[in-house]
Design a protein around this nucleic acid. Structure first.
Length: 968
RNA sequence: GCCGACUUGGCGGAAUGGUAGACGCGACGGUCUCAAAAACCGUUGUCCGAAAGGGCGUGCGGGUUCGACUCCCGCAGUCGGCACCA
């Protein structure tokens, strides 16, 4: 008989031991087979990826595809730097989920594309002269090879890159959809421009100024239409970055007023640029956050970014000026009686017209900045404000004493004008100050120093009245921004006194509306999306300009508009502080391309092409749709395919990708833009889903330790030695440890290739998944990887004789305890997989393996479910064992084990006995023991008796069969 | 400043209000070996104790509860986002 193979019989050099070499052989073999057999192909309802079922039309087949599960990763930018072990974390996680869902019977759509436009490739081209496409495609090839070795269960037929002409064609098509739409505020949705034009032509609608369509000149008509398009050219302040030679979206500018890429200063200035009217969707973008399954933190970030705030517009007539009035936005209309002055932003258009030639009598010296007349004073102040970058402006001017600059000292100047407070007729001074921003609200405020910190600071500095109109709690000093009864707030027919803040707001707004002096309103922080860049490596706009400079869509049949070859890929860049420079995109130099003759309905004419390109966010704003129908030449996505993969599952649902995994760094940029485009496409009837991503999950990051020597230079982390006292040395010299990213410059990169070579892909996958919860960041520790390999080796040994390679699985029946362990494990692993808790799922598999090893269990009825549970995380070794047990096909679609309730309950349960809240005894009892019997057993336990020590028992809590708590 | 998340052994981390520290790394002890490495087996929160057992322990201070890592209040620290947004 077989000698009991216990501890000492294990030979590390056994020929059939699960080593990196064997793993490598197994993994490559299965990867080739999966590819050859198309194991992970996901059929579509219709089109080229529909199942080949003869003459049947697609409609019938859709039902036969079964339940779907669409899982997505945030696709990568194909960098030339190569992967480190942090990159695949999310891809492994989605692969585990995808494989699990496939074993539950779902039709799983999982593929990976490449977000291939980007600055690095362009910078590389500027240096080398190589076309960015060549470099990018080479990087994609390398990256695919590295990722393939992970054994990801992707449908390769659905992979694409955003630079593929076939993809660009539809990116440009979507741009034109946006361009050819307007937002109908009444219907609260985007509608085609053609419908608006029809309404104008039929006379159903007049221009906003009341003019009839028929009375307008052709150019006026174009301008009217263009002014409401969702994609439009606008000459308004943008973020100009001379150092990069391009403009940037607000989202691409850091809090310090610098470019996110390159860290160059950014200046606000007016330039003619493409924008997208994302602000039209502000409410829906906020409201629909309640309908998606996203991390609360990301939802909150988007809410903050959109920045909806409710309040009122109030008109303050300018004293002495006929029709002039200052329109302000306030969130606190309840404090109108506390408004003691007003402030205009330096760029506010009314500043010039309201500033008089002379100071009024008895003007305070502090208000004039020492200037002899208001016009000079205001002009000087505005010039000074304009010269500041946003950074300086936000940092605040250094105080008179050269203060360290912590506080944002308020500066400003009196305009010499006064305005009338509409609620009490009071005349209050109007200032210009740069603490009021032109970009928010109306660029003008009513200042209520008693209840606003900023106004309080300014009022204190300039000696302005501070009048409390909300009763602060007793003993409170300074500004009170909280709730309380209104005081000093009554005049004429408006009486707010004693009302709470909320009630006073409502009352004040009603009064303002009734008297035509204002209205309740909502403002947003969100600005329209700046959509053009002065760069080469991006999608060209499918737009041409006519002789009058009016934009026209390039006809659909001419898409895609390809990038022309240019002699030089760089935009003209300037000194980082050259504010007045004019942007000059590289495409402008392709003069033959720029000038084009087209017939857009009026016969052949010369047009000039748009020479800006789209921002890198364009491709990623709709790529989820293309996975569902990657080769469609007639549409971006066929409606049936879209409905199947993305359509809402229940009435009123948003639909969207079932699970989208990626880093939290895209919380506002990519995720906001993608939602916006998706909603436009929904409004126009191109998709049935209202949201692109139904469930979002942010994976954490793999961090790493880096080490610096005494000069602060990074040293090779792999060669640092740790000492028992917790210190580290490199080549004998002491080094300092720091914790952060993995990167070449930090000399702490560990690559997946090293892991494949040393342990194999399955070990690497297990390690990454077992390090901790998926949403937490954690440090990489190469020396811990061996633990995952030991697990797989132990498991392998259960099945395979390491000396002979013989499969040792028997047809024996399993003992009751093992069955209990098995079904407990099945139950737990299923739940963990569902909740993306791969770390605890793996821990349970390890526990079970340790149990089977200890008991030398070889029963097929236990080992087969074990292999199936392992398959999502370690698919290659699972496939190998499955096939060695005699199965011929892949286990990719084998049913995931189901726990048998009969085996879930244990024979005995450990009951804990607490005395005065402390555990004093444990007793093994039957799971269905009664309360009374359990109580009696507990009180008979010697250690429990000793702990009670004769004290009177006040109460006994029995939770059979797990717990007895004795209160003394 | 505002918003959000987090804080558990030497380390990564487990724990529907019910045995704190599962699982893994490391460390220590052992088996095998001439030896070492590898592998395997065992121990491992901390203090007292020969043991039985007991004290103390989940950032800090309170509270609710028979019972709190878990719930509530206050504080500190770390990380992320926003930031003169009216």
């Amino acid at each position: 008989m077989t000698p009991p193979d216990t501890t000492s019989g294990i030979d590390p050099d056994a020929p059939h031991r699960y080593t990196a070499t064997l793993a490598d052989d197994i993994e490559r073999r299965w990867q080739d087979r999966w590819e050859a057999e198309g194991t992970f192909w996901a059929p579509n309802p219709v089109g080229d990826l529909a199942p080949a079922t003869g003459a049947d039309s697609g409609d019938e087949d859709a039902g036969e595809l079964g339940d779907k599960f669409f899982i997505m990763d945030m696709f990568p930018y194909p960098s030339g730097a190569g992967l480190h072990v942090g990159h695949p974390l999310g891809y492994i996680a989605t692969d585990v989920v995808g494989r699990f869902r496939r074993m539950l019977g779902d039709n799983v759509l999982h593929a990976l594309g490449y977000d291939a436009y980007g600055l690095p490739a362009e910078l590389h081209s500027i240096q080398t002269g190589e076309h960015p496409r060549d470099n990018t495609l080479a990087n994609i090839t390398t990256m695919k090879r590295q990722l393939r070795r992970l054994g990801l269960a992707h449908d390769e037929r659905r992979s694409f890159a955003t630079i593929d002409p076939d993809f660009v064609r539809w990116t440009q098509w979507i741009f034109l959809q946006v361009f050819e739409s307007w937002y109908d505020e009444d219907a609260q949705r985007a509608r085609p421009i053609s419908e608006l034009r029809a309404e104008y032509e039929s006379g159903a609608r007049n221009a906003p100024d009341g003019a009839a369509w028929s009375e307008l000149e052709p150019l006026e008509r174009s301008l009217l239409i263009d002014s409401v398009r969702l994609a439009y050219v606008d000459d308004s302040p943008v973020n100009w970055c001379p150092g990069l030679g391009t403009v940037l979206a607000n989202e691409e500018v850091t809090g310090e007023g610098r470019s996110e890429r390159g860290n160059f200063p950014v200046y606000t200035r007016k330039l003619r640029q493409w924008k997208m009217r994302i602000t039209a969707y502000s409410d829906r973008l906020i409201d629909d956050l309640d309908r998606v399954d996203w991390p609360e933190s990301v939802k909150q970030m988007q809410r903050n970014w959109i920045g909806r705030s409710a309040g009122a517009h109030v008109r303050f007539p300018v004293v002495g000026a006929q029709d002039a009035a200052i329109d302000v936005f306030t969130t606190r209309p309840d404090t109108l009686f506390g408004a003691t002055y007003m402030v205009l932003a330096p760029e506010h258009p009314l500043v010039d017209s309201i500033t008089p030639d002379q100071w009024p009598d008895e003007v305070s010296r502090a208000w004039t900045n020492g200037q002899d007349d208001p016009r000079t004073a205001v002009a000087a102040y505005r010039a000074a404000a304009a010269a500041k970058t946003d950074v300086e402006r936000q940092a605040g001017a250094p105080g008179p004493g050269g203060s360290a600059g912590g506080a944002r000292d308020k500066t400003g100047v009196f305009t010499g004008a006064h305005a009338t407070n509409p609620v009490n007729g009071e005349s209050i001074p109007v200032f210009v100050a740069d603490y009021v921003l032109m970009g928010y609200g109306t660029g003008a405020i009513m200042a209520v120093p008693a209840h606003d910190e900023r106004d309080f600071d300014f009022a204190t500095a300039y000696g302005l009245d501070i009048r409390p109109v909300v009763q602060a709690p007793e003993g409170h000093e300074g500004v009170w921004t909280g709730d309380g009864p209104a005081i000093n707030s009554s005049h004429g027919d408006l009486d707010l006194d004693a009302l709470s803040v909320d009630d006073a707001k409502t009352t004040a707004i009603t009064w303002l509306q009734d008297h035509g002096r204002g209205a309740g309103t909502t403002t947003y922080r969100l600005r329209d999306w700046l959509f053009s860049r002065q760069r080469y490596w991006g999608e060209p706009f499918p737009i041409v300009y006519d002789a009058q400079g009016q934009p026209h869509a390039v006809p659909d049949s001419m898409l895609p508009v390809d990038l022309p070859d240019v002699p030089d890929y760089s935009p003209r860049t300037f000194a980082p502080d050259d504010v007045t420079s004019e942007p000059e995109p590289p495409l402008a130099r392709a003069t033959d391309w720029v000038s084009v003759t087209l017939d857009l309905g009026d016969g052949p004419q010369r047009y000039r092409r748009e020479t800006n390109t789209m921002p890198n966010w364009a491709g990623s704003s709709w790529y989820e749709l293309r996975y569902a129908d990657p080769h469609n030449t007639d549409r971006a996505v066929d409606p049936q395919n879209e409905q199947y993969w993305l359509g809402p599952r229940e009435a009123g649902g948003t639909g969207g990708v079932d699970l989208y995994v990626g880093g939290v760094e895209h919380a506002v940029l990519h995720l906001l833009y993608a939602r916006f485009w998706h909603k436009v496409l929904f409004d126009l009837g191109h998709v049935s889903s209202e949201e692109p991503f139904h469930r979002l999950f942010n994976q954490g990051y793999i961090q790493a330790y880096a080490f610096t020597d005494e000069r602060g230079t990074y040293v090779e982390a792999a060669d640092v030695v740790e000492h028992e006292d917790g210190s580290w040395t490199y080549e004998g010299r002491p080094v300092q440890r720091e914790y952060g990213k993995m990167g070449k410059s930090l000399k702490n990169v560990v690559t997946p290739d090293e892991m494949y070579a040393e342990y194999g892909a399955d070990t690497f996958r297990i390690y990454e998944m077992s390090m901790g919860p998926l949403d937490a960041s954690r440090p990489w520790e190469t020396r811990a990887v061996v633990g995952s390999q030991r697990f797989l080796q132990r498991l392998w040994r259960l099945f395979v004789d390491e000396a002979t390679g013989e499969v040792r699985v028997t047809e024996d029946a399993a003992d009751a305890e093992t069955l209990h362990v098995l079904h407990q494990t099945i139950d737990g692993v299923r739940a963990d997989m569902d909740g993306l808790r791969f770390n605890t799922a793996i821990a349970k598999l390890i526990e079970m393996t340790n149990h089977l090893t200890k008991k030398q269990v070889r029963a097929r009825s236990v080992l087969e479910p074990m292999v199936l549970m392992l398959a999502p995380v370690a698919p290659h070794v699972a496939e190998e064992l499955w096939s060695r047990m005699g199965h011929t096909g892949s286990l990719a679609r084998a049913p995931f084990p189901v726990a048998d309730p009969a085996h879930l309950a244990a024979d005995t349960v450990t009951c804990v006995v607490q005395v005065a809240g402390k555990v004093r005894g444990k007793i093994e009892v039957s799971p269905d023991i009664g309360d009374e019997e359990l109580e009696a057993l507990a009180l008979a336990e010697p250690n429990v008796v000793r702990s009670i020590d004769g004290r009177p028992i006040r109460k006994i809590i029995v939770r059979a069969p797990k717990l007895v708590s004795v209160v003394v």
